[in-house]
């Protein structure tokens, strides 16, 4: 029984790992389908809660796979799911880095790095606005994000202090 589940976890996340172009969040609907609709490891509500938890907890949000694995088959399930999600994509990425490294001495390398940098800046702003919209649910939230951004850009205050202060405001029920 448990062996079956572990094998299913390995196959599921091993294959999702290789198709998760654009980051782990693109395969969340497929995870939901398998974990909730097809296998009943989690309820809909539990999946939503665990997704929010993985987003907010330290580390990559893709570590939600550890929680799904845990729900399916305990600690062994968490380990199998995490390794299955990471190993295939990391292997592909490592091969890409090796190939990219071989170009290092070429002017192409410099041109690609310089040329992609401004494109990335635009993408970072797009991500930032998406995150802000998802994070803030009212004027207080937007004001806090704006104030924190100003502090982070204009002063050298540690972001950890800004985040701790923001979390404290949350605990006081002000955001």
């Amino acid at each position: 029984m448990n062996g079956d589940r572990l094998a299913r976890l390995a196959v599921l996340f091993g294959s999702l790992s290789l198709v998760s172009f654009g980051g782990g969040n693109t395969v969340v609907p497929a995870m939901h389908h398998e974990a909730v609709t097809s296998q009943h490891w989690l309820t809909d509500r539990q999946f939503a809660d665990l997704f929010a938890l993985a987003q907010a907890a330290p580390g990559p949000s893709s570590l939600i796979v550890a929680l799904i694995g845990f729900a399916a088959a305990g600690i062994a399930g968490a380990v199998v799911a995490t390794l299955a999600m990471l190993a295939p994509s990391c292997t592909v990425m490592f091969g890409t880095c090796r190939a990219w490294d071989r170009l290092r001495a070429s002017p192409w390398h410099t041109a690609i790095e310089r040329g992609l940098a401004p494109v990335t800046v635009g993408l970072v702003f797009a991500t930032a606005l998406t995150i802000t919209r998802a994070a803030d649910h009212g004027p207080a939230g937007y004001a806090l994000t704006a104030l924190a951004t100003l502090l982070l850009v204009r002063t050298s205050v540690s972001p950890l202090i800004v985040m701790a202060a923001a979390a404290a405001l949350g605990l006081l029920g002000l955001v």
Partner: peptide, 18 residues
């Protein structure tokens, strides 16, 4: 509750990086 504040600040981190 604490996370709601932290998440707002995390969004600010990404904006500030931009």
């Amino acid at each position: 509750a604490g996370l709601r504040g932290a998440v707002a600040a995390a969004a600010a981190m990404t904006l500030a990086m931009g």
